[in-house]
Simulated scan of single mutants.
Amino acid sequence: MDPLIVRKTESAMMYGGAVVTFLSGVLSFFAGISLGNWGVIIGMVITLLGFYMKWREHRMKELEHKLLMEKTNAEIFEIKTRTVFMERAGLNNTPYHTPSPALEAMKDSTNEPTT
């Protein structure tokens, strides 16, 4: 037989033996657990998943509340700003949006009578 083939076969058998040994150990561990123990393990996993889901839900609600508060504060600021500008416009008898000086100059030049 070819020595290269023998070496590859030995290597494959060695790795295969290691995998089988590991899997048999894992399976014997799980086979040794009784149904009562399985119930406890599954209960712990479900409890941990429940805690995680509640934590995530709480975190999402906090984030949603924070965004809502930022939006509300921005709307309140806009209303206050608009109110202040409207009060100033009422006190000075100036329009809410004052036209630029260039626009005023154009209006004045068009209102002059031509002779």
Score class of each variant (00 low, 15 high):
residue 4 L to M: 00
residue 46 I to Q: 09
residue 4 L to C: 00
residue 91 L to A: 09
residue 103 L to N: 09
residue 110 T to G: 03
residue 89 A to C: 08
residue 63 L to M: 10
residue 8 K to W: 01
residue 48 L to I: 15
residue 12 A to C: 02
residue 22 F to H: 03
residue 52 Y to S: 15
residue 47 T to K: 08
residue 26 V to W: 06
residue 17 G to Y: 07
residue 59 R to F: 01
residue 80 K to G: 05
residue 1 M to E: 07
residue 23 L to S: 01
residue 54 K to N: 14
residue 7 R to W: 03
residue 3 P to Y: 00
residue 96 Y to R: 09
residue 109 S to R: 11
residue 92 N to R: 12
residue 81 T to H: 15
residue 95 P to Y: 08
residue 52 Y to R: 10
residue 15 Y to L: 08
residue 114 T to N: 08
residue 92 N to I: 06
residue 107 K to H: 07
residue 8 K to G: 01
residue 55 W to D: 12
residue 95 P to T: 07
residue 30 F to P: 01
residue 86 M to F: 09
residue 18 A to V: 05
residue 36 G to H: 07
residue 26 V to H: 07
residue 88 R to E: 11
residue 73 N to L: 10
residue 95 P to V: 04
residue 102 A to E: 15
residue 92 N to S: 10
residue 2 D to A: 07
residue 93 N to C: 03
residue 13 M to C: 04
residue 50 G to Y: 03
residue 99 P to Y: 07
residue 30 F to E: 04
residue 108 D to W: 06
residue 3 P to S: 01
residue 92 N to Q: 08
residue 106 M to Y: 12
residue 30 F to L: 04
residue 91 L to D: 10
residue 5 I to E: 10
residue 39 G to C: 06
residue 8 K to T: 03
residue 33 I to C: 04
residue 20 V to S: 04
residue 109 S to M: 06
residue 70 E to G: 02
residue 85 F to E: 15
residue 59 R to N: 03
residue 67 L to I: 06
residue 51 F to R: 00
residue 17 G to D: 11
residue 86 M to K: 15
residue 44 M to E: 14
residue 74 A to L: 06
